[in-house]
């Protein structure tokens, strides 16, 4: 398959996924027992204002017309108006998106940086104590409840030891280099909690694929050629095991975003997740709807990008 066709297919898939997310949201909002108008009109409005708004959003039209109108509005980036802040939902969310991106990206990088050595360690000591230990840590890591992890870190490193701030994303009133330092120190605990819940499955997958790779013919050949075990492990087997393990991360992005929502809530981190939490308390439905759609678009875009990058890095991906 040519590169162009491969890229086109991945892009098409990304667009299909976004369309699916939009359609599911539309159908759920319209077909659920709740009042669909809630997604645009606040119950606190006067009857008249509400009727005008509903008409403006075409909510008095048949379902199919509504669907087309809905798609058209989303296409223009119109996610409605926040009940509580009376400004466009997109503006509310775009202000918060960079923080969520910073948090999740940091957690992803940490997961990979910590996860690869742990996976290699376990696979190269298969069956030994070290391997058992990594497995136990991995399985436990998968069973953690994000807020619990966040709260523990916050209590220990934030309050008792006082090493890191306990909430927010930066210190108010500082500028220049100091501001960036404050952003970093505020990032440590939330990123760590998000990493901890993500790490388990990454390490376990890394371990399993590496053990598979170590059983392959080219490893036997490399051994027969007298290459050192260390060289075989890091240079040959690991390279082949990286791809499936890292693809898993792509598949997990949706889960990671869910984790970010909870982490941001614990640490009062001003990302989309904290926005969702606040919108829940105030029943700000347009914000909730917009947050889901924006996060879905972000996840799909990130996935599509990584897929395409893999295609360039590893020719096997394109042919499969």
């Amino acid at each position: 398959m040519s590169i162009a066709l491969f890229v086109l297919r991945r892009l098409g898939r990304g667009i299909l996924t976004i369309w699916f997310a939009v359609t599911v949201t539309f159908l759920l909002l319209r077909l659920l027992p709740g009042d669909p108008a809630l997604a645009v009109a606040s119950p606190n409005m006067t009857e008249e204002a509400r009727a005008t708004l509903l008409q403006q959003y075409g909510l008095d039209q048949p379902l199919l017309t509504q669907y087309v109108l809905y798609l058209g509005r989303l296409f223009q980036g119109d996610l409605g108006t926040s009940f509580t802040q009376s400004i466009p939902v997109l503006d509310v969310l775009m202000e918060r998106l960079p923080w969520t991106l910073l948090l999740t990206a940091t957690a992803l990088v940490l997961t990979v940086v910590i996860g690869i050595p742990l996976g290699v360690l376990a696979a190269s000591h298969k069956g030994a104590f070290l391997d058992r230990f990594v497995q136990i840590v991995g399985v436990t890591g998968q069973s953690l409840f994000v807020p619990s992890v966040g709260i523990v870190l916050l209590l220990v490193f934030g309050l008792n030891l006082g090493w890191f701030p306990i909430g927010g994303a930066y210190t108010d009133g500082v500028y220049g280099g100091e501001w960036y330092v404050s952003v970093l120190t505020h990032l440590v605990l939330p990123a760590l909690s998000l990493t901890l819940i993500q790490l388990g499955s990454y390490v376990l997958t890394m371990r399993a694929t590496l053990i598979d790779a170590l059983g392959d013919d080219y490893v036997t050949l490399a051994k027969a050629n007298g290459l050192s075990p260390r060289r075989i492990l890091w240079k040959h087997a690991l390279r082949n095991a990286l791809l499936p393990a890292t693809t898993l991360i792509g598949l997990q992005l949706g889960f990671l975003v869910g984790g970010a929502v909870l982490t941001e809530t614990v640490f009062a981190y001003p990302g989309i997740g904290r926005g969702i939490y606040e919108a829940v308390t105030q029943l700000d439905f347009p914000v909730l709807q917009g947050a889901f759609l924006l996060l879905a678009v972000t996840v799909v875009a990130a996935n599509t990008l990584t897929d395409i990058t893999y295609g360039f890095l590893d020719p096997r991906v394109k042919t499969s």
């Binding site: 299909l16 027992p33 598949l251 869910g258 929502v261 889901f292 996840v299 799909v300």
Partner: peptide, 24 residues
């Protein structure tokens, strides 16, 4: 399999939140 793949690649928690908030 397309529906399953698509659903699994979406951030499900925010969607659950939206629905739970709407339905009560």
């Amino acid at each position: 399999s397309v529906v399953v793949d698509l659903t699994l690649s979406l951030p499900v928690l925010p969607l659950m939140i939206l629905i739970a908030a709407l339905v009560g």
